[in-house]
Each structure stands twice: as structure tokens, then as C-alpha cells.
Design a protein around this nucleic acid. Structure first.
Lengths: 203, 203
DNA sequence: TCACATAATCAACAGATTGTTGTTTATGTA
DNA sequence: TACATAAACAACAATCTGTTGATTATGTGA
């Protein structure tokens, strides 16, 4: 099970991914040809096909990696204690996440285009669903006698997160991860959670 | 200036757009070829090029039309009276917008894919910027001595709107436009606006 | 109703791009 | 250093794009 991967394979894959990310900054996904990627990565076009099924496959694999970083952070702490949401923990988690994004700003900027958004969103939703369900499952939120489904809450919260990320990587700003986290917590914590009737623990 | 457009032109354009929207439901944007669009629209491929520069051009024009519907609604009412936001007006506007979306659900569903999202977002932001600026320009919002720029607020609010729309058209639900508007107003109005220190008029 | 401007069809074109294959060369590994 | 295998290379059919010139069909306005 522990066969070491050939150095050449690792090197080539790395170069392909870097080439693609670099190209993403200059042109749209659809405009990038395999030949261009191969040229930029300084490999033969056929070699590309030895590693990736097609352009979409390359894209998926890149996305997969970046999502994993988030998943690891999210798995570390429990946000819920009884029926109370731990805001401080939430803030810590957010700070870490914004840190990862900040450190890889050019990367996230290049992959957070239109194409990524929908897939990114979908993967994030899958990732966040359990977290949110944990918080909201015992809560019946109603609006004019119509129950507000968890689906909606998750979409809503994910949108906020995505919007924040989008702004962070695409606009000039001097916000550090810490400030971002605090700001989002302030908006979501003081705003939404109380509106939705969630108990809050600020320590 | 008032030359009437040839009926054939209108008919053909309509068929191309309808064909494209229909195809969007079965496959991804990149997978759709001009030939397929032409086949579905029952016109010659060359005719397509007589009306649209390329696939992207077609897409842009479709998006343009759908944005206009929103723009018209947004232009009707002033949201701000002095320093106070008129929630009721906001709710009326939102209701109308959700109505438009609801009525054209399959359409918005098919165009609100990853591709659209980023362009849709951009156009919405341009559209909403003035509205938001009107509300927030005289307000200095600070977080730990760092001023929160209008950019951020607009991104944040636009994200919420987009997320809501995304949920509305892509998930099974029995929410009518009225309920959607009320729910969003409740979340945004009671939550964010108060956090941001905006005065609110609920009538 | 009819002439005509113009829209749509059709066939054919070069140029790009894709994905694959068989052969040869280069190189990391043990 | 020998060998397994990764990468380079060249050539391939297949598909799609965008354009053009000639021909046919059809709305429109007189």
C-alpha cells in the first residue's frame, strides 16, 4: 500500500496545476487549451492526458484539495454545547479559514471564478450541512406558519461565507483574517442567530 | 429611428434563445455546440452567426434581459427616507422580484448555473450599488478601528440575495414570493441593519 | 397583389482543438 | 548500473468553429 510515487509524476502534476492556476489569472476557463497548459507547464500535451482525463478533471482535483483544507479546520471543534452556539469557537474556526484563504489569495482568487462558484458552493454545502444540522435540527423555525427548512438556512449561511471570501480575495483591503472573522461573527452572531432564536455563548 | 424589425428576425432570435435555455437544462454550457442550438431551434447554423457573435454573446444577451426586469422593479421606489430605511417598501420590492423569478423558475434555474453566477453577481452588484450607497454612504461602520467599506456591505447583501434566489429555484419548496420576502426582511432587517446601526421604519 | 429587400438555407472551407496511439528517448529508483 | 516506467514525439481521425459566396424563401410596404 505504501508504494512511493515516482518523483517525475509528482513534479509533472505540480507543474500542470501551477500552470493552470497561473493561466486562470489571465483568461477564462473555457479559453484555456490543453496545449497552452502543456506549454506553460513545459511538458508534452500527451503527458497531460497521462495525468488527467481532461480539463474538467484537472479542475476537480484542484478544487478537491482546497476543500480538504477547510474540512480539516471544521472537524476540529464542536460548535454546539447543549442548545447553545459557541461563538468564540466559531470565530476561531473562521479566523483559521480566512487565514488559509489569505495565505493562498492568488490561488483562491483564480479558482473562485464563475465556474468554481457553483461547485465550490456545492462542496461547501455538503461540508457545512452536518455542522448546521447539528445546530438547527432541534429547532423549528417558522415564518407565517411555514417551516423554514434547514436547506434554506444552509444556503443562506453558505452564501454569506462565499460572498465574504469573494470580497476578501477580489477586492483591495487591509483586513486580516482576525478582523474578517470578527466582522462576520458580529453580523451573523448578533443578527441572524438571535433572529432565528438560537442561544448564544460569547466566551 | 423607428424601423420595424423583420418578423423573421424576431422569430429566429426567439427560437434560438428558447432552444438554448432548453438545452441548458440537459447539459452544461461548454457541452452545448452551436450546431445543437441550431438543430433545436430548427435553423441553419450559419443563421445563428447572423444573430449572435458566438455562444457567449447569446448568453450575455439572455442575461441582460433578465437583469432588466430587476432593474425596473428597483427603480420604482426610494428605500431611504432621511436616515431611515423603509422596510415595508423593501419588502414590496423583494416580493415583486421573487415573483418574477418564481414565474420564470425554469428559466432562472437554467441560467443560474456556475457560469451565470459570477456574471449575474457582477451585474447585480452594479445594479444594487447605488441603492446601497444611498443607505450606507453617510454611515461610518467600523470594526476594531477598521472601517468596513461599502464594497463589503454590497457583496455581503448581494450574496444573501443570490443565495436566496439559488435556493428558491433549485430546491423543492412551497414558499411563495410573499413568504420569501418576509423571511429575508426578517433576517436582514432585524439582524443586519440593526447591527450596522441603521434606523428602521417598519411601516 | 406584387416587387424587392433581406433573411435564411446550403455547401464548402481552413484552422483549432481534442483525445488517442505506437514508437522512441530519458530518467528516477532500488 | 539495470530496468521499469514516465515523458517526448509525431501522426491520426474526429469534432467544432467561424466565415464566405451562391441560392432560395419570405415578410413588408407600395
Amino acid at each position: 500500500m505504501k508504494k512511493k510515487t515516482d518523483l517525475r509524476v509528482i513534479r509533472t502534476k505540480k507543474m500542470i496545476i501551477e500552470a493552470f492556476v497561473a493561466l486562470s489569472k489571465t483568461k477564462e476557463y473555457e479559453e484555456i487549451t490543453i496545449q497552452e497548459i502543456a506549454d506553460a507547464a513545459m511538458i508534452n500535451r500527451a503527458t497531460f492526458y497521462a495525468h488527467f482525463k481532461d480539463k474538467q478533471d484537472l479542475y476537480d482535483q484542484i478544487l478537491e484539495v482546497s476543500i480538504k483544507a477547510f474540512a480539516e479546520i471544521l472537524d476540529t471543534e464542536k460548535l454546539l454545547s447543549g442548545k447553545t452556539v459557541k461563538l468564540k469557537k466559531m470565530e476561531r474556526m473562521l479566523t483559521k479559514i480566512f487565514q488559509v484563504i489569505q495565505e493562498n489569495k492568488p490561488f483562491f482568487s483564480s479558482i473562485s471564478d464563475g465556474r468554481a462558484t457553483i461547485q465550490f458552493r456545492q462542496k461547501l454545502i455538503e461540508l457545512l450541512y452536518d455542522k448546521y444540522e447539528e445546530i438547527f435540527k432541534n429547532l423549528k423555525i417558522t415564518e407565517n406558519d411555514i417551516e423554514v427548512p434547514i436547506d434554506f438556512i444552509v444556503q443562506y449561511m453558505t452564501s454569506i461565507f462565499l460572498g465574504t471570501v469573494h470580497w476578501l480575495v477580489n477586492y483591495e483591503n487591509n483586513f486580516n483574517p482576525d478582523h474578517m472573522a470578527r466582522l462576520v461573527i458580529k453580523l451573523v452572531g448578533n443578527g441572524h442567530l438571535t433572529v432565528l432564536g438560537i442561544e448564544i455563548d460569547r466566551d
